[in-house]
């Protein structure tokens, strides 16, 4: 501790919780445990959400209708992480990307590996690389990372949210 900080004291705020995932997220994660990516669709604007949170945040209505999406998609955006983050076991540099699954209207954050960092680009087609089935649980960590499929890139205009 530095000299000018000698009079500081550390508060020991520590609270225990039993967090619950939410009904929609619970349904989603239970399907993830079976290797399926199940999205939810807005009854008003038809937007497809994965992972679903149980509501369309644009329309403020519940999203009950569910549909299974493939584990393929495209890179909507990405960043190459060069600094180690405390508690994160992944060794930098690595790619964190917003991945838009085929048929979804929002993207989610995941890793991209099995790629030369210089090749990563917006619009690149990717596919999920799943862990061994015996290791699956109710978590998106069932997908180790995404890897390039080698298909032609998609036009970034597809990422525009449909009105």
């Amino acid at each position: 501790m530095s000299e000018e900080k000698k009079d500081f004291f550390v508060s020991d705020i520590s609270l225990s919780y039993q967090y619950t995932a939410g009904n929609a997220t619970t349904r989603f994660l239970n399907k993830v445990a079976e290797g399926k990516l199940v999205a939810q669709k807005c009854p008003k604007c038809s937007a497809v959400y994965v992972p679903p949170r149980g509501s369309c945040p644009r329309c403020g209505v519940a999203t009950e209708e569910e549909l299974e999406l493939p584990d393929t998609g495209a890179v909507e955006s990405f960043t190459i992480v060069h600094i180690p983050i405390p508690g994160n076991p992944i060794v930098p540099p690595y790619v964190s990307a917003m991945i838009r699954l085929d048929g979804a209207d929002i993207s989610f954050l995941h890793l991209i590996q099995e790629i030369d960092l210089a090749d990563i680009r917006i619009g690149m087609r990717v596919q999920a690389v799943w862990k061994d089935k015996s290791d699956w649980g109710t978590t998106l960590e069932n997908i180790k990372w995404f890897k390039p499929t080698g298909e032609d890139d998609v036009d970034p205009s597809v990422f525009k949210f449909k009105e």
């Binding site: 009079d7 500081f8 508060s11 919780y17 039993q18 995932a21 239970n30 109710t138």
Partner: peptide, 24 residues
């Protein structure tokens, strides 16, 4: 730790804020 109840996913966790406070 995950609940065994498939319908109800619960994860226990500890929330900590080890702030260094200056008493002034």
């Amino acid at each position: 730790t995950k609940s065994v109840d498939k319908e109800l996913l619960r994860a226990s966790f500890k929330l900590e804020y080890p702030y260094e406070r200056s008493p002034g």
